[in-house]
């Protein structure tokens, strides 16, 4: 138990610290790398909770795909981030005010003791006991039955995002020659190659001069 507690605090502290570094570090590439560190620790927290499926998916999706593309873009961008930072300072007061208001609201919510409204027990019912089924199976069971509608809806949203990316950025270039593999494969050697029987010493038709 003590080990678990220690691991939890280590992971939690590193997650938060990495999160701070994401916004604090000067170099955007380093920001992304700290973001990845935060993802890793969050995934460690999932493992600690016994949600190993979510832990792995977090790494595969966010670290393995999303953050790679972030890094990709950030490395190629030619933006002077110190200039952006100067602008950031300008807006700092407004941002701070908004943040403080949100914080105050949250404190208000928790301080008034409004939190301990009876959360109905029904919420917990859908979850089978962890040792009964693996949590991959449990997630699948609920995702493809009860939440199938939302799952499909979310799929549709992603489809629209993909259509959007293609519509808004894809340009059909006409000035490039494209490889047509089917044409290459379908090409008949008889049409492309002529074999000529050239006698030694005779004028070859392949000789240009």
């Amino acid at each position: 138990m003590i080990i678990e507690t220690i691991v939890f605090y280590v992971l939690a502290v590193v997650t938060v610290a990495a999160g701070v570094m994401v916004i604090a570090s000067r170099n955007p590439v380093q920001s992304v790398l700290f973001l990845i560190l935060a993802f890793f620790n969050a995934s460690g927290l999932f493992v600690l909770l016994g949600a190993e499926f979510l832990a792995m998916i977090l790494i595969i999706v966010y670290v393995g795909a999303v953050a790679v593309l972030f890094l990709f873009v950030v490395m190629m961008l030619d933006i002077n981030f110190s200039e952006l930072r100067a602008g950031f300072l300008q807006y700092l007061p407004i941002g701070a005010i908004v943040g403080i208001i949100l914080l105050a609201e949250l404190i208000l919510v928790f301080a008034t003791g409004a939190v301990d409204i009876h959360v109905p027990e029904v919420v917990a019912v859908a979850m089978p006991a962890p040792d009964e089924v693996s949590n991959t199976r449990a997630l699948g069971n609920i995702l493809y039955t009860r939440y199938a509608y939302l799952f499909q809806g979310a799929g549709f949203i992603l489809l629209v995002a993909m259509i959007g990316a293609i519509v808004l950025t894809h340009r059909q270039r006409v000035d490039v020659r494209r490889q047509k593999i089917a044409d290459q494969v379908a090409r008949d050697p008889k049409a492309a190659i002529t074999l000529k029987d050239v006698k030694p010493g005779e004028e070859g038709s392949w000789k240009s001069d």
Partner: peptide, 10 residues
């Protein structure tokens, strides 16, 4: 809402 909005942004 998101399905609708995303299509509209595009």
């Amino acid at each position: 809402l998101e399905l609708q909005s995303l299509s509209l942004y595009i």
